[in-house]
Amino acid sequence: MLPTPSTSHVPYSRVYEPAEDSFLLLDTFSQDSETSFLSDRFPTSSPTPLLLEVGPGSGVVLAFLTAHAATLFGRSDVLTLGVDVNWFACEAAKETVRRAVKEAEEEEEAAAEGEVGKRDGENNGEAEGEGRTQNTRNRKSGRLLATAQGDLASPLRPGAVDVLVFNPPYVPTDELPTLPKELADPAAATPAVATTNDDSGKRKPVPKTTYAQDSTLLALAYAGGRDGMEVTDRLLAAVPDILSQRGVAYVLLCAQNRPEEVKARVRAWESDGGRWMAETVGSSGNKAGWERLQIVRIWRAVA
């Protein structure tokens, strides 16, 4: 079991708290079937994969995928990126990834030291032990490039993304919330109060939001409009453009999103390479064959 990243620093009053959907993504990526699919898809001899999570929120999934890249993808040279409409989520997710990578690296160093100690005991050779630390150091973690504020994948270059992860606002709602103008740039528009939300201990100005603004930020994380699919449909429409030929997308759907219909639509997409595939690769809340949540993997079959 890989450790779940700590999100204790995340302000849950305005950033979606990790829940069943987030944990389903962690479980799905941890399955043997998924790690072997991904290491086959991105063999270590192939170029460095770029992973984008759209709407990382607290950053728990992004941090998990970044910190445990070697285990999950079979390689540690994975670059990751998060784009969220919520500025506070961008900030929180960046910190979540930083903590998770640091923790993974400390664990790795402790393991390497243990290894050296053991060998020293056997050989009484300190110099050899030090050499080993350098050579057998297996990096576990990928690297976060950035988190950025944006609408879905709109700032990404066409064909740039190899792994796309999306835990959308999937709850059916009468209306789709819109981001208030002042929250598009909260640092410029709202008064700042000195507070601290990282473990550096230094106080820094953080924009102050109202209760109503916070509610809107949370609503943006769950409210999906008609069938809970309005935001997901926009993202799906962009997938063929932003995904590389070898690219794979993971999209979470709930039962009300009509996942079988969504998969059928994806399979009917036009393709200039291999045909489009869509399969359910993880599910939870299984009650009498009725899966409440599922993860759909979308990719082009090798032509």
């Binding site: 504020q149 944006g150 981001l179």
Partner: peptide, 17 residues
């Protein structure tokens, strides 16, 4: 596009969407 505290903001004003 402004970059603040290392976070770039790619949200567009309504007339550019």
């Amino acid at each position: 596009y402004a970059v603040r505290e290392g976070i770039a903001n790619f949200l567009l004003p309504s007339h550019l969407v």
